[in-house]
Amino acid sequence: MKVSMTVNGQQHTDDVEPRLLLAHYLRDVLGLKATNIGCDTTSCGACTVIVDGLSVKSCTVLAAQADGSQVTTLEGLAGPDGELHPMQKAFREEHGLQCGFCTPGMVMAAIGVLADNPDPSDREVREGLEGNLCRCTGYHNIVRAVRSAAQAGPAAGQVPQDQEVAR
């Protein structure tokens, strides 16, 4: 079947099997390999992307279900000049990543947390990230990164594609 969607600001139309998962569509069809797959049971959040302004686990969405949507992955966050998104910047400064496998999903979920609550407490960040597992960082620096990103203002809770929509 045919699916069309805008991924990181670019329009794509492809012929896919109905059962193709959005995560595999992004990785294998579009070659956007940042989005990772860490489980079979919608548990780990490594595959989190933003679809129409909401964080979702792309391993549990069919590409067919995202037909017509706006999708943002980690690759779509930095500015055209390479300027890091406030969340990316905060993850780097606070050492919020080690092996990096959870990171793409964690960053997208963290943007979702701030979209929902622009100035969360530690506890609220932890609850907001309850669907994202990290084996390396013990979450300590991830929590710090999200809270420090929150200080950067509303952009930390938005993807560039939202900002375009808002404009």
Partner: peptide, 9 residues
């Protein structure tokens, strides 16, 4: 219910 991503869907 679950986590934010689950509640979004």
């Amino acid at each position: 219910v679950g986590d934010p991503q689950v509640r979004h869907r």
